[in-house]
Amino acid sequence: MNGDDKTLITYMISFDVKNGTLQGFSKTDIGGLHETKSLISGTYNATTNMLAFQESQILYTKSQISQKDFCYVFFEGKLKLSANLKEIKGNFSSKYKDGKKCINGTLLLVNQKKIEKTISKLSTKIQSSKKLDTTTKKKFDLLNMADSLQVNRLLKNQNLSIFATSKTIIIEVWDNKKEDGDAINLYQNAKVVLKNYTVMNKKKIIEIPLTTSPILLKLEATNEGNYAPNTAMIRIIDGENSYELLSNLKKWESSSITIYR
């Protein structure tokens, strides 16, 4: 919240703490047009229970705004970390890359395990209800809805920008569920890399040297397989970082990935 602005933005962090040092990542606007994943680093003092972290390098973004216009979150709060921690709440500030102030607000994070437990209970109640028909139950399958939030979906005409650090990236293409004949075209700067390729459970591995920047990868669905839509799984490996993406396209729809180095 910033002044009279009461805009709510989804936000998630995942981190490990070793010897007082915190390392992990954050996700902003999850599933939205501006979804962004960034590295976070910080400290945790087990004696004073002070937790502090800040965002740094952007790993990827679906936003079309430039890097210089991104706000980086700085958070500090007092809490005791434990496996049963229910929530993290406190004020945050943010800065642009050049150090200028951006916005301030309140950060409220709920333990993911608590959310998953609640969703599981609600899902069981819905699926066991005798008052709902099969179609309605399928529509409100909360477990599948929750799973969809964990997957980075590539939608029609959407571009994902990745900021790579390696000289070479590895691309893996496969069908992570039952093979149903989904086929794709994959282009690298308009050059065909895969033509009408049918994705299978066995991964297709492609190595791309980052000799120029940016590199534009275009993914195009040439059919929708036996079960619409086209859902090819793509993993991009950049050194220690990797990104799993799932196409969600109708026939001849496409999405793109821009890789900067």
Rank of each mutant, 00 (worst) to 15 (best):
D4E: 15
K6P: 07
T7I: 08
L8Q: 15
I9N: 13
Y11N: 10
S14G: 14
V17Y: 01
S26H: 05
T28D: 03
D29C: 03
I30C: 06
L33W: 03
E35T: 08
L39E: 08
Y44M: 02
A46Y: 09
T47A: 10
M50F: 10
M50N: 12
F53S: 02
Q64G: 14
I65W: 09
K68L: 10
D69W: 05
D69R: 05
F70I: 02
F74L: 10
L79T: 09
K80V: 04
A83Q: 11
I88H: 06
S94C: 06
K95Y: 07
K95W: 00
Y96W: 00
G99S: 04
K100F: 11
I103T: 05
G105S: 15
L108I: 14
I119D: 06
K121C: 10
S123Y: 11
T134A: 13
S148E: 09
A164F: 05
A164W: 02
K167G: 13
K167V: 01
D182Q: 04
N185D: 11
Y197M: 11
V199I: 07
N201A: 14
K202Y: 07
K204R: 02
I205K: 00
P209H: 07
S213K: 00
K218C: 06
L219C: 03
L219T: 04
N223T: 09
N226L: 13
P229N: 12
P229T: 07
T231P: 01
T231K: 10
A232E: 06
M233Q: 06
I236T: 01
D238V: 00
D238W: 02
S242I: 01
S242R: 04
N248T: 09
S254D: 09
S254F: 11
T258D: 03
